[in-house]
Design a protein around this nucleic acid. Structure first.
Lengths: 261, 261
DNA sequence: ACAAAAGTGTTGGAAGTACACCCATGA
DNA sequence: TCATGGGTGTACTTCCAACACTTTTGT
């Protein structure tokens, strides 16, 4: 929504296109400079930052909606995207006055106001998805109502709107727990990468350092990555081997994963 | 809903009380006779069985709704209940004609019909919860539109309505993967139980046998259960020790659980 | 005394962890 | 030649899996 006209159309006609009472919130993890960051946005006249999100079209699959929303926000397609929980308990989600009030502050920028009975004033549940994207390839779409965006370090997330902090916590927990069952990182690293690169990624995600030798043993033994017969030149140092993801194994890991016995 | 009048009221006025487009489906695992079973229901004039489910009230938390629905169906409160996934992709969920048609077959019993624009004809997403209940304590509430119910073995689930088979598969996967991080079974076993009892439960859930000695070592080492200084008399056999759940540890396990490192 | 269930300990293998030295490269 | 990052192996510990005999108890 890039213009006031589009916003007005959304507010008045959106209920025909979208399901009410339900939104998707995306925790978009980006990796850059050996840090794990999250993409936050701030709407017009809002004190708190929010997660990027959107609504589900009436005849659209849920997963498809999540992909669409993510690509609308980041211009990226075909990303690693994973549903992790549906949020519908927080008292802030049930407080109609606060919801309506916040919306109206935002929509004031387009000179529109909504009343208590408007579809956007209603309580919503939110399905949480997390995504892993390459920070560099993201170009955040400028939207009329979004006045600011920022990548913040996962360890320094400010106080967010509604229950979005809780959503991020759960996303991180889920991401961490799935790290060794999925080829997480497939979207964050070039096709071929060095051991150090993927180790730095895992360290950023899990927030702790690993031993080089043990890390390699584990990743290769699990079948997540494969060593290639190729090296990369990297300045005044020994040339490291390249690796790639073993995607055949990935699906097997995923099926077995989660089930401990 | 025990009478045609209540059904009619629900159909005509339910949209005021409940959120549209959203339901909760419960995979109710019951344990009996060393078998893990699932509670299924069959609505009037429906060929396929379904999972018990319900709708979320407009000002009700999602978790609260799940508990309410479960206790409406089983008369049990305070159960182990866990959200596991939200389903919104299956083509059967988007096929309005099929949905409306199925509803109308069911509602014919109350001499009501709904049209294409009715709130119950619309596409719904479904939040999946699973519960663990003691088969014996459940008294399934007779409902006017539900003509039959059955406990079926998890290994012999018939073909169900919509995507309910998929929901059960995911529920089982989740239950199995969480088995050692949560005090699953707290609601299925008496406060004090023998090792054999809990082992039989775990075997039923995971579908494979364990070695007595190794099982005991593992459960005690993980801190899930504690051996008591007490035995039970069980007929012409040696008296087994009693155990109980170590609920203090349970919360710690739960926090650490899922996160592998 | 016997049938049925429960209690108990050891061993070998696999996986995980800790740890340090040498090598390659470009400036 | 030096500074920097990369490559590599071993010993120790812990966890898991396999495995069988003895004890208790009521009839």
């Amino acid at each position: 929504m890039n213009s006031p006209e589009e916003v007005v159309d959304f507010i008045y006609n959106g209920h025909q296109r979208f399901l009410p009472h339900l939104s998707i919130d995306c925790v978009i993890f980006g990796y850059h400079d050996q840090q794990l960051k999250i993409l936050l946005i701030r709407y017009h006249d809002q004190e708190h930052w929010s997660l990027p999100g959107g609504y589900v079209e009436r005849q659209e699959g849920l997963t498809a909606a999540a992909h669409r929303i993510l690509s609308e926000k980041t211009q990226l397609t075909n990303l690693y995207l994973q549903q992790f929980y549906t949020f519908g308990d927080s008292p802030t989600r049930l407080n109609r006055i606060e919801i309506q009030d916040n919306h109206n502050k935002v929509y004031a920028k387009a000179n529109v106001a909504i009343d208590e009975e408007h579809w956007l004033s209603k309580r919503t549940l939110s399905v949480g998805y997390y995504a892993l994207v390459d920070y560099h390839e993201v170009s955040v779409t400028p939207e009329f109502l979004v006045v600011d965006y920022a990548w913040v370090d996962v360890n320094a997330v400010p106080s967010l709107q509604y229950d979005h902090n809780e959503i991020i916590d759960k996303a991180l927990l889920t991401l961490r727990s799935q790290l060794y069952q999925q080829s997480v990182g497939y979207n964050l690293l070039p096709e071929k990468f060095t051991l150090s690169e993927i180790q730095a990624l895992y360290e950023a995600i899990l927030g702790k350092p690993f031993d080089r030798r043990n890390f390699r043993k584990k990743m290769v033994a699990l079948g997540v990555i494969r060593q290639l017969d190729e090296r990369r030149k990297i300045g005044p140092h020994r040339s490291p081997y390249l690796y790639d993801f073993n995607l055949e194994n990935a699906s097997k890991l995923q099926e077995a994963g989660g089930v401990i016995f």
